[in-house]
Structure formats: structure tokens, C-alpha cells
Computed example of a mutant assay.
Amino acid sequence: MPDFSSFPITQRWPASHPEHLQLYAAPTPNGVKVSIMLEEIGLAYEPHFIDISSNESKDPAFVSLNPNGRIPAIIDPAGPEGTPIAVWESGAILIYLAEKTGQLIPSAPAKRYETLSWVFFQMSAIGPIFGQLGFFLHWGGKEYEDKRPLQRFIDESRRLLSIVDRRLEGRDWIVDDYSVADIATIGWVNALIETYGASDILGLSNFANVSAWLGRGLARPAVQRGLLIPARPA
């Protein structure tokens, strides 16, 4: 039985199956990266819903796992040396899981770093910019009288979509095969439509390659499952 005694988070959110990887997340664009990845690779895991609307990610037990107080985070009971390991930051978790299982990341060094470049592009650009756009369209920012910040994030979101659209010209996936680069990005592009209602304001239909890529991604059963995990309480 894994020893979780050094992880206070397991007292706040106990593990029913401590032999499984423990996922602490919510079904947000960042959170679903990891649930989609876990569904794709078939690794047994136990999801714990972290209610970020109630600031549960700022709970001292959660912060003991991720000092930044942001979802997602994991504990793998079967870490690299056979002992439990904690990993936080969604991009780091994707890379950890890909390397642990040898799945969804190329083994050839050149392609591997190409894939990682697109993962970090999502982390450094797509996530922060789309997230700010969502704030100004859907959350508190929609009440702001000054619309210049909104326009700034509309323009930058369009620019980023154009980069991905050009990349996908003649391609099914961001790199040659479906990979962590796609998994990192799918939830964020989907959120533009499903959560932020930004399709029209961004002219998303003008990005035909992105739209076709998103359709291919959403057709994957693991993606459909992962988008809803961890389930929100009824």
C-alpha cells in the first residue's frame, strides 16, 4: 500500500484507491488536459473535484501539494523510484505522464522537442490569453466600462488562432501524430466556444483548419470523457 503520510492533501481529500494515481482538478481548460491524457493512456486514476469557485485550491492542504494554489495536480503512487511523487502544473503533468508511459510524445529527439515547443506555446500564450479573453467576455470583466482590454485580448486570441491554423494546414494534428501538443490545446479552443461564447467575436469559422482539428479531437471518446472529469457535484 502506498505511503501518503507525507501528503496532507490526502487527509482533506482521502484516497479510496491509493494504489491509483490521484488527480486533483476541476473540468476547466487546464484541468481537463490531465483527465483527457489519463483517459487516452488508460492509466488507472482516482479523480478528486477541487471546487475552485469556493477557493478550495487555496486550502492549505491543496497548497501543500501545489504552492501556487492552482489545479491540476497529481500524486502518482508509483513514482520513478517506486515511491509516491507529486507533480503540479498541467504541462509538467502531461510530460510526466507521456514519459512514464511512453505514449503520446515522439521518441525521436527532434520530434520530441518540436512537440514540447507546441506544449509550451499553449502554456505561455494560448492559455493565458484565452483565459483573459474569457474573463472579459464571461466573468467579472464583462462589467468593465473600458472595452480596450477586451479588444486587446480579442486581437491577440485571433493572432494565436492564426498561428495554429497555419500550423494545421495539410495536417490532422499539431505535430505528425496526435500527441500531448493536441491534448494541451483542445480544452482551451473548446472553451472559446462552449464556455466563453467567443466564436462570433473571434470569427472562429474563418479558422477552418482549427475548426476541423477541434472536430477531430472532440470525436475521440477519451476526449469526450476527459472533458467531464472530475465531475462537478450535482
Results as ranks from 00 to 15, higher is better:
residue 4 F to T: 04
residue 5 S to I: 11
residue 5 S to C: 07
residue 9 I to H: 10
residue 12 R to A: 15
residue 14 P to W: 09
residue 14 P to L: 10
residue 14 P to V: 10
residue 15 A to I: 06
residue 19 E to Y: 10
residue 19 E to R: 06
residue 22 Q to H: 10
residue 23 L to K: 05
residue 23 L to Y: 02
residue 27 P to I: 00
residue 28 T to F: 00
residue 29 P to R: 01
residue 29 P to C: 11
residue 30 N to I: 06
residue 34 V to A: 01
residue 37 M to N: 06
residue 42 G to D: 04
residue 42 G to S: 02
residue 44 A to H: 07
residue 48 H to T: 07
residue 48 H to K: 04
residue 48 H to N: 00
residue 52 I to Y: 09
residue 53 S to K: 14
residue 53 S to M: 15
residue 54 S to D: 11
residue 56 E to T: 11
residue 58 K to S: 11
residue 61 A to K: 00
residue 63 V to F: 12
residue 63 V to A: 11
residue 66 N to W: 08
residue 70 R to H: 13
residue 70 R to C: 02
residue 70 R to A: 13
residue 73 A to I: 09
residue 73 A to V: 05
residue 75 I to H: 02
residue 76 D to V: 05
residue 78 A to D: 13
residue 78 A to P: 05
residue 79 G to E: 08
residue 79 G to N: 02
residue 81 E to N: 15
residue 83 T to E: 15
residue 83 T to L: 07
residue 84 P to M: 09
residue 86 A to N: 08
residue 87 V to A: 00
residue 88 W to A: 08
residue 90 S to K: 04
residue 91 G to E: 01
residue 93 I to S: 08
residue 93 I to K: 01
residue 95 I to E: 13
residue 96 Y to D: 01
residue 101 T to N: 10
residue 106 P to A: 15
residue 109 P to Q: 13
residue 112 R to S: 04
residue 114 E to A: 12
residue 115 T to A: 13
residue 115 T to Y: 14
residue 115 T to H: 14
residue 119 V to Q: 02
residue 124 S to L: 01
residue 130 F to K: 00
residue 131 G to L: 06
residue 132 Q to P: 05
residue 133 L to F: 07
residue 134 G to K: 03
residue 136 F to R: 04
residue 136 F to V: 03
residue 137 L to A: 10
residue 138 H to R: 13
residue 138 H to N: 01
residue 138 H to D: 08
residue 145 E to R: 12
residue 145 E to F: 05
residue 146 D to C: 08
residue 147 K to N: 15
residue 149 P to F: 12
residue 151 Q to Y: 06
residue 151 Q to E: 15
residue 154 I to Y: 12
residue 155 D to L: 12
residue 155 D to I: 10
residue 155 D to P: 09
residue 159 R to G: 06
residue 160 L to E: 15
residue 160 L to K: 08
residue 161 L to S: 05
residue 161 L to D: 09
residue 161 L to W: 00
residue 168 L to C: 14
residue 168 L to Q: 12
residue 171 R to D: 03
residue 172 D to K: 14
residue 175 V to N: 12
residue 175 V to G: 13
residue 180 V to A: 15
residue 181 A to W: 03
residue 182 D to V: 05
residue 183 I to A: 01
residue 185 T to H: 05
residue 188 W to R: 08
residue 189 V to A: 04
residue 189 V to M: 06
residue 192 L to E: 11
residue 193 I to H: 11
residue 196 Y to F: 15
residue 199 S to M: 12
residue 201 I to V: 11
residue 202 L to Q: 05
residue 203 G to R: 14
residue 204 L to C: 14
residue 207 F to V: 08
residue 207 F to E: 09
residue 212 A to M: 03
residue 216 R to V: 10
residue 216 R to E: 02
residue 220 R to N: 03
residue 222 A to R: 03
residue 222 A to F: 04
residue 222 A to M: 01
residue 225 R to F: 04
residue 225 R to E: 09
